[in-house]
């Protein structure tokens, strides 16, 4: 058993901030949707707006980080080992088979994660941000006025925003469960909190494809731990 440094400090901050914001946006958002009453409608709208701005700011920082550090390449979807990873969840896991892909700071996402997270980042989050901004800044058509954003109704915007929200809820449920599918039940969670993850030594069958040309930041040394 050895301990690998997987998640950078900013990455972890980003992850937990994003988690908190998405949960909060979900609660306030579904209240605005009329699914339940918790904060009260007026408060829910106010909080949802504030959290939305927080989320947008966080996204701006995250994009900056991903671009400057080349980390965006982590999310490039790949066919390689996709089947192996899927097979692992369907069969291997129940036979105590090892994870088919090796997690390193260079390549921390398995092929299924790459696919799902890329979808999240390219499709769902942008849709939510865009429809959310339209929601905030639309103006109904007014005569003889310069308009920031003219739409005839909220129907389509609201539908897209709601679909996105439902997809995020489902992602959230699956994500919570998949935390437990690391080397041990808690090793994924620990990694996201501390940055370090316990990984088995030599039992890796397939090494995940290394991500090319990551800008060279000093990676903390891998600590060997007595088994």
């Amino acid at each position: 058993m050895k301990t690998e440094y997987i998640y950078h400090r900013f990455e972890r901050f980003w992850h937990w901030m994003q988690a908190a914001l998405i949960i909060f946006l979900g609660v306030t958002g579904f209240e605005i949707h009329g699914s339940f009453t918790f904060f009260g409608y007026e408060q829910a709208v106010e909080y949802h707006d504030i959290a939305a701005w927080g989320f947008i700011i966080l996204i701006a920082f995250a994009i900056f980080w991903h671009v400057t550090k080349g980390e965006w390449r982590q999310y490039l979807p790949t066919w390689r080992n996709l089947k192996a990873q899927a097979d692992y969840y369907v069969f291997g896991m129940f036979r105590n088979a090892p994870h088919p892909t090796k997690k390193t700071v260079i390549s921390k996402l398995n092929p299924l994660q790459k696919l799902v997270y890329a979808g999240l980042k390219v499709l769902i989050i942008p849709t939510m941000v865009f429809t959310g901004l339209v929601y905030m800044f639309y103006r109904y058509p007014q005569r003889n006025e310069v308009l920031s954003l003219n739409i005839s109704g909220l129907q389509t915007v609201a539908m897209l925003h709601t679909i996105g929200a439902f997809l995020l809820v489902s992602f959230f449920v699956a994500h919570l469960y998949l935390i437990t599918t690391g080397h041990t039940v808690t090793s994924n969670l620990r990694a996201m909190i501390t940055g370090y993850e316990d990984l088995p030594d030599e039992s890796i069958t397939v090494v995940n494809e290394p991500v090319p040309a990551i800008s060279g930041e000093a990676v903390p040394e891998t600590k060997e731990v007595a088994q």
């Binding site: 909220l154 129907q155 609201a158 679909i163 439902f166 997809l167 809820v169 489902s170 449920v173 699956a174």
Partner: peptide, 27 residues
């Protein structure tokens, strides 16, 4: 018109809750 909090699209609700149920069942 569509008013948030009052209106919803029944197909979106069906899709959303169906997806949530499937995910939970899968988990």
């Amino acid at each position: 018109f569509y008013m948030p909090g009052r209106d919803f699209n029944p197909w979106v609700e069906r899709f959303g809750f169906g997806l949530m149920a499937l995910t939970l069942a899968g988990v």
